[in-house]
Design a protein around this nucleic acid. Sequence first.
DNA 1: CGTCCAAATTGATGCAAGTCAAATGCTACT
DNA 2: AGTAGCATTTGACTTGCATCAATTTGGACG
Lengths: 251, 251
Amino acid sequence: MAQALKFRQAPSPLKASCHQCSLSNLCLPLAIQDNDLDSLEDIVQQGRIYNRGEHIFDQSTQFRSCFAVKSGSIKTSIITESGEEQVTGFFMPGELVGLDSMSGEAYACTAKALERTSVCEFPVEKLEELTGKLPDLQHHIYHLMSQEIQNGHQLAMLLSKNTAEERIASLLLSLSSRFQRRRMSPTNFSLPMARNDIANFLGLAVETVSRVFTRFQNQGIIRARGREVELLDVEALQLVTREFSRQGCQQ
Amino acid sequence: MAQALKFRQAPSPLKASCHQCSLSNLCLPLAIQDNDLDSLEDIVQQGRIYNRGEHIFDQSTQFRSCFAVKSGSIKTSIITESGEEQVTGFFMPGELVGLDSMSGEAYACTAKALERTSVCEFPVEKLEELTGKLPDLQHHIYHLMSQEIQNGHQLAMLLSKNTAEERIASLLLSLSSRFQRRRMSPTNFSLPMARNDIANFLGLAVETVSRVFTRFQNQGIIRARGREVELLDVEALQLVTREFSRQGCQQ
DNA sequence: CGTCCAAATTGATGCAAGTCAAATGCTACT
DNA sequence: AGTAGCATTTGACTTGCATCAATTTGGACG
């Protein structure tokens, strides 16, 4: 079975092994038959490891590849002409980064490692070629992209209709369920991103994020020390996210 | 060549003629070679005509098709469990509606005709099958979907960082350029949507939208009477959209 | 181990936009 | 043509969050 191969320290680009990967139930392999997995492995490149703060790719540079997070986490953001930043997403292991750039020659956003992060790289030409051959993979890519469109709509709703508390509760619950799907504790995790990133993503000021965290803490809903977070009362959090809607109903 | 077949008035579903369509430079045909156009025509169905307010499809019903707007215009929105509506987009002739639903079995949103509207229908199974055969078409669908993801990010930015005036100026300019691409006046058009829809889409109260319209009018930037709008000073509008960013720079 | 700088917290104040309320203008329908 | 029922506008008032300012905490590094 050549198990040892996984551990050799050969120079990259190394061919990644989707067969061996523990994320195969989250990542692209979940979409395709075992016997087609080889053709996916053929086009994947083992990306290098990025330290916190390093860029995986930069907005406006030539679009070459999508990246799957293998370990660690990534934040994407767009920068306006005037230098304003807007965080557009956070990506965890198994998630695919770069789908928003499939429209053009250049990356539509910048991707930055939030911690020590490793990725797998899928060159677009090869990926497009392969999706032409594997209908299941094509379908899955459509699925992922439309999912991302829907995420955008949900975010728009959050931004335009919900209070600071509701936005933050939503984010915490989203992170929670994503940790859970990765077999990590849904109630006890460490936030990969800074308060600043949370604020920017949710359209709030950092101060507001900080205040809401302490308010939640005082109410006994969460316990937070720096980036370490413990969700003490998930139901209460869910209640917060629906608070607004419930009032809307009562009218 | 059986030219005559294209003009018969047979009962629908009628095969649409992309060859004859005046939107072929905006719609899906723009992506594919002339000799492949036939295979696209093979899967397109001439949709029926919808009156203002009629639904093209409904959220949570079985996802069957994407629709290209032929004439008129469409608004899409999502409805929460509590009945809250969030307008997610406006679609003009040549634009493709339903891409956000390619992830699942059900439509992710509801599409409603804003005026008398005709559409062409692309059944998904057939569309996916065809994109597997025509790399150019596949590429174009990826393009459209990633474009929509980017639109979502732009909207998120608008909602989280910009004032009411900036949001409305942006919308007016967006509509303007989309009218222009359709060979209609970029400065003199009639809004297909109600103030309410604008407000909802931009995360504002109707009253605020109304006030901003009159403010712009008093400043001589636009002239608005009901849904009829004339952009008197496009540069001033562009300035408004950048106002925020410019202040950000000065800091 | 102490120093330095960025991140996070806490408090005080102001304002943009929401909400409530009422008048006016449209449009569709009989 | 007349009326009913929305859509839009305008005004008065309220408020959630941003902004400004000042500490406090924490992590990186010599």
